[in-house]
């Protein structure tokens, strides 16, 4: 039994807004605890729709989402129970901040979960801690923070639900390099510390290459590929045809292959590439 599984999910918007939002057609995939899955696809490929289906914000027209084996829509009245288990961080989540203090804002979801005051306290503190903000921030107004800090507070608001599946829609959009690194590390740490499953939507091939074990490739609302990261990136042409690209380092290796170098080697991250190249130089020197 998978932690979270989508089976033949389909959904379409039946309004004028469909020009902007794409439908989802017949998507199946599953996620296990402790996995990080990347979802990639061009703008309008249905990523955002899929994310909202996964945590029960949208109800599928056909197909189903199973959380720990249970169809999340079995009892529509209980749907919010699943929304707490399957946390969804929207794109630019800082726009959802509304409370007077950071503490109150992070406590919003735990309060809706009807937890005890003590438990809420614990959760807010640990969530602040997870996003690398110290307790001094708790009493500040979220509107006085910098862009990167707001983003982290908003993510903390979801982490405080202790979701077993954490879904993030482009969590690094608009951040500078330092902010990006901080957020990506936070996500990795949350997974390490809680064993949660992570689903991350990203436009950055470099980020997903460094972070994700598996990738789900979407195009025009359909799942084109769902496989291990390196297997997905080995299908260069399929990626290009669907408006995607290789990580920069992989492109360098593709070029090297064309020149006849390192033909049987491939790397997707700078670290891997460095090792391969250093090894082959040293190996080359040894052979000589």
């Amino acid at each position: 039994m998978s932690l979270l599984a989508a089976e033949n999910l389909s959904f379409s918007y039946n309004s004028a807004a469909k020009i902007k939002k794409m439908a989802v057609k017949d998507i199946s995939f599953s996620v296990e605890s402790g996995e990080i899955i990347g979802v990639i696809g061009h703008t309008g490929s249905g990523k955002s729709t899929l994310m909202q289906l996964l945590n029960g914000l949208l109800k599928p027209e056909s197909g189903a989402v199973y959380f720990e084996g249970q169809n999340i829509w079995d009892n529509p009245k209980e749907i919010s129970k699943f929304r707490f288990q399957i946390g969804l961080v929207f794109q630019y989540p800082e726009y959802q901040l509304f409370e007077e203090t950071v503490y109150k804002d992070i406590a919003f979801a735990p309060q809706n979960m009807k937890l005890s005051q003590e438990e809420i306290d614990n959760r807010v503190n640990s969530a602040l801690n997870s996003v690398g903000l110290n307790y001094e921030f708790a009493e500040k107004s979220p509107f006085d923070l910098s862009g990167g800090e707001k983003r982290r507070v908003a993510i903390a608001g979801i982490l405080a639900m202790h979701p077993k599946v954490l879904i993030l829609d482009e969590p690094t959009a608009g951040l500078d390099p330092k902010g990006r690194a901080t957020v990506l590390n936070m996500i990795r740490d949350y997974k390490e510390n809680t064993g949660a499953a992570i689903i991350i939507v990203s436009h950055s091939m470099e980020d997903v290459a460094a972070l994700c074990e598996k990738l789900l490739v979407l195009s025009n609302g359909r799942a084109v590929m769902f496989d291990k990261t390196e297997n997905v990136f080995s299908q260069y042409e399929t990626l290009i045809n669907n408006g995607l690209d290789l990580p920069s380092v992989a492109k360098i290796f593709e070029e090297l292959h064309k020149l006849g170098y390192l033909k049987d080697k491939m790397a997707y991250t700078v670290d891997d590439a460095k090792k391969i190249i250093v090894d082959s130089i040293k190996g080359g020197a040894l052979n000589a």
Partner: peptide, 19 residues
Amino acid sequence: DEKDACAAIAEVLKGGAEK
């Protein structure tokens, strides 16, 4: 960019192979 990097790395690898 990637092309420059590839050329630079190829140069080094070529040197390594010739040694």
